[in-house]
Design a protein around this nucleic acid. Sequence first.
DNA 1: GTTCAAACTAAGCGATAGATTAGTTTAATT
DNA 2: AATTAAACTAATCTATCGCTTAGTTTGAAC
Lengths: 191, 191
Amino acid sequence: MARTKKYKEDEVIEKAMNLFWRNGFEATSTRMLEKEMGINQFSIYSSFGNKEGVFLESMKCYNQKINTIVKKLENREGGIESIKGYFYDFLDFSKENNIAKGCLLANTMTELGADSDLVIKAKVHNFTANLLILFTEKLSVNTNCDTNTIAKQANYLLVSMMGLSQVSKVFDRLQIDNYIETTFENLKPMM
Amino acid sequence: MARTKKYKEDEVIEKAMNLFWRNGFEATSTRMLEKEMGINQFSIYSSFGNKEGVFLESMKCYNQKINTIVKKLENREGGIESIKGYFYDFLDFSKENNIAKGCLLANTMTELGADSDLVIKAKVHNFTANLLILFTEKLSVNTNCDTNTIAKQANYLLVSMMGLSQVSKVFDRLQIDNYIETTFENLKPMM
DNA sequence: GTTCAAACTAAGCGATAGATTAGTTTAATT
DNA sequence: AATTAAACTAATCTATCGCTTAGTTTGAAC
């Protein structure tokens, strides 16, 4: 015997996610969320508890969204070139109206300090851990390298990827392309 | 016929700089600055105009502080190893109580969006441009590479450095060391 | 020692932050 | 059609934001 919601939670969260992605957690106010999500603050708080709740759901949403390019990498044959493809896919993925927004999770990682929420930290850590595993798998295809070398390479590419996502927000395309090419060109002699 | 200031502006700015370095621009309030700088808000505003004025002076202060490791690089013999030394120097430099704070300028770069203050942006750009020149000079010592290749390498190392400063705030020392070693190890065959 | 402009203190300005409340509307259930 | 619990609206809560102001103290110049 109750009224039905006028909005779908996953739809308004996607809008919230885009706002957080563009502006970061701190610079996004509940009034901005209200406007962007198209629902009243009361509805926001009754659905997600508080601002952090909205953010946590936004991270879930981001994970689903980035999963399209992660899946794309999973379906590639493997080897260095497959990961290079992921780097370029990410640059497209992270752009909106030709403005690079970086990676929501990497942005969060740098925005939140040492004393920040542990749940959020764990989510970021989980994301990078999964990416490391995928990179390792892809590097293990058609290679003579021992597992130790592969682990080093995977770690190197993970750090490069996180660095890239930050740097892409500011540096121009030529610098970025040059960076990616050099990153992978230099890895070849190790193979 | 006037009273003398009880504080030295460069001393209180250094304290402000450390606060901005730890927390970023947005997350640092004028009350926090008041407490950290040890002077009243009135004094802050009469000396530096507004919060952004404090930040701009903090950037100057940061530039002076990081200049110690930049000078150290300038005085090195040159070649890849000299820049690798700078990377490790930076890791030490950016730590406080064993907590990595990243690079104040790189942090600012990522914190401020597309529509941020142009003066601040110019300062960040100026910093990276100077570092690029220095890297180029150091790479030009004892090498057979053409200027085009050197330019690519210098750009690669600049982007790597900026990425490193961000990533160092979260990743552990093993991952960071591995990243630096791989970055430079892989560059050798190009020389 | 008196003067007085600048350096102080502390209170408070309007605006906005995250979050909540009282009161109204809605629609599935009876 | 009446009921009723949840979904709504809009106003408002307290705290804090960046910044300013009124009033007091200070100390170099005279």
